[in-house]
Design a protein around this nucleic acid. Sequence first.
DNA 1: CGTCTATTTGAATGTACTCAAAAGCGGTGG
DNA 2: CCACCGCTTTTGAGTACATTCAAATAGACG
Lengths: 208, 208
Amino acid sequence: MFTYLPTMNHNLLLESISKHIQLEDNEQQHFLSYVQVKKVKKKEYLLMEGEVNHYAMFVNSGCLRSYTMDKNGFHYIQQFAPEGWWIGDMYSLITKEPGKLCIDALFDSELLLISRVNLDRVYKEIPKFNFYFRVLAEKSLVSFQTRAMENLSLHAKERYEKFCFRYPTLIDKISQKQVAAYIGVTPEFLSKMLHKDPKVNSDFFDVD
Amino acid sequence: MFTYLPTMNHNLLLESISKHIQLEDNEQQHFLSYVQVKKVKKKEYLLMEGEVNHYAMFVNSGCLRSYTMDKNGFHYIQQFAPEGWWIGDMYSLITKEPGKLCIDALFDSELLLISRVNLDRVYKEIPKFNFYFRVLAEKSLVSFQTRAMENLSLHAKERYEKFCFRYPTLIDKISQKQVAAYIGVTPEFLSKMLHKDPKVNSDFFDVD
DNA sequence: CGTCTATTTGAATGTACTCAAAAGCGGTGG
DNA sequence: CCACCGCTTTTGAGTACATTCAAATAGACG
């Protein structure tokens, strides 16, 4: 038998889990036996439109993104997943049917994968993971409820500010094109928006 | 001691639960002891902006809505909750902090309420409810992920069609104003949209 | 019946898109 | 190390979708 001792690769994930539930040593090892490490290069696909998503993915380093495409080839980014985030096509994971999301890597990344099949085993064998993933799903739900409303009610500039607030570590790492696809405008418009009216606080220049 | 026999009021809820988990008779009674019935009149508030949401609400009959307001007094409807739906301010329920949602009744309605405190007891005393509410949260998550993307990528007309698809029972019951607040347009624009270009399929009228 | 709210309609306006073309930037190969 | 290629960013002119404001009409409810 293998023993599944936690390695450096698992630190971030175990830390996330320990914030919500307490695992016995054997439970931890049992859980980690269901987890595999995967390294991907920038631009590598983890899921393509129309595929069934077999894995929930936890990002150890790097950054993934999930997005949909419309008939005109426009991208709409559903989520970025920097270090410490989970990502996947929840629809496909739940229903086991082909989904509409693409997932790929914005940078070289290291991931932890847990297959849907193993996830079901985890729920059955270590029921407290129902609690962990319930809490995660609820938090994610709040985040998407908020974004759904923001996408209706806010102008592009305000959506840009929300983006900056939500992903402060990404602003200076990803291209404007990615940001545009997240806030739902064309790259051309985002460029114009960021140039005109450069948010100069005129108070700084007030001279008598 | 009271006994908490299921009444007609609980049928819909028990049905929903039984689709996901199986309860022993004593578990069912235990659960129902945490649930209270509430009747509300049309336009009655269940939660106002800035309040802490103490109850998860299940709609037995009638219909609730949750919405936010912007500085101009515009309404943006996050969700309708017709018969058989859960509703609440998930942010406030999770964090125990004041939320930004308002919840009120579109029609006279009958609700089942379970307080956050009792919900925590349920999770502790009948852990399989973690499974039930995890599955619900995941489904709701998918729905809001989808809507967040739709609100970025679709035109008003397409968002209207999605609304019709999502709430087929509501189309002929609620006012255009409510629909406008859900799809994120002004009532004036929705009115124009529904009048011009009345979706006549010209094939039907093709004469040689 | 009267009042209040929802709906309709029109004209002027604004936010964001489309299309086009030029300039900038990064990586790769010779 | 430079030249080239592909992709991103910038900029402009014209357009489209949706809003604002205003006013008239229709509907709902006590």
